[in-house]
Amino acid sequence: MISCKDATELAMKSAYRKPGAYDRLRLRFHMLLCKFCKLFQKQNTIIDDAASRLDEFAPKQMTEDSKKRILKKVLD
């Protein structure tokens, strides 16, 4: 059985691209037996989802003063 270190790496990579059949099998087997890596995998998905939506959820604005200052510098 692969270690938790390898399993978490595989789980993390799988979120970006589908692993090969052998890796998929090894990962599934590990996840079946290890509740901690399963938690990691679930939470990893949550973090990925949230990270890709940071833009819409954390809108910040410049102050009017900053805007005035920047526009002035741009046009100078």
Partner: peptide, 8 residues
């Protein structure tokens, strides 16, 4: 995060 055997 992990020991030398790769366990949490």
């Amino acid at each position: 995060f992990f020991d030398e055997k790769g366990h949490w």
